[in-house]
Design a protein around this nucleic acid. Sequence first.
DNA 1: CAAGCAATAT
DNA 2: AATATTGCTT
Length: 288
Amino acid sequence: MKEDDSNWFSKWEEQLPNPEELMPLTQTLITPDLAIAFDIGTSNTPHNHHHHHHRSLQQPSPISTPSSQHNSGEFDSSDLGGGGGGGGGGDEPARTLKRPRLVWTPQLHKRFVDAVAHLGIKNAVPKTIMQLMSVDGLTRENVASHLQKYRLYLKRMQGLSSGGGGGGGGGFGSGGDSATDRLFASSPVPPHFLHQPDNYLPYMPAAALQQQQQQHHHHQQMAAVAVAGHHLHRHFGSNHQFLSRQSLQPVVHRVGTPVHNSVSSSYVDDLESAQEKKALTLFPTGDD
DNA sequence: CAAGCAATAT
DNA sequence: AATATTGCTT
């Protein structure tokens, strides 16, 4: 029996490239206008009239999508977002702008799980998780939706497996694992997730609580947001994945806060289940 | 308003 | 299928 395409696809998932490797980080992917136009609205920012809308939501990433193995670096990213893209005449699409669907890559999910783990179940609410993840482009709703699903996944698991559940690579319902579960299963589930949320870590989350949507730091953080231009099809031809990075804003960021943002830097993503034990230093504290 | 959750929509 | 969105409750 030959392993069908799913095989390479699976491997691709696991070996998921880190942003650093793929992203030359040549330019800001999301323009400030766009950024504020979109996600900030989640909290407040009633209305900013900005008649300037760039539609450069995504750029043709140099990334070879799994399917485009032999991509020639063509940018067919085309419209996307609508930005209206090319819409032609109308350049007032800002109102109807829709964000592309977020693709939860294993790496991104890992970040999500890490955030939840470090926050504790109790403090792990969408807004906080979102802030802790520090991923540009992530909205509260993105997280909320994912969190909901994730909780269902956890519950589902508590029922059938007490032992294999958390194991990275564990978690396989006997016959009940859907592809969705594969995503969730790709990251190690902290043990206390599966139990009753007894009061753990009564302290510590303080450092994590930052109020700011706008990111600061002009350094490498990890932002791996992939957006689907169209429906995801794992077929050759049309499949674009874009890794976006943090968009740096010219915003003056105050250093007056005695609290260090070590939050973001405290993250160390390690791929434990990876075949390769390449320890990814997402936050090279040394290169600073 | 934010969060949680089920149902529903795309 | 995977996410987003909506409705309703807390």
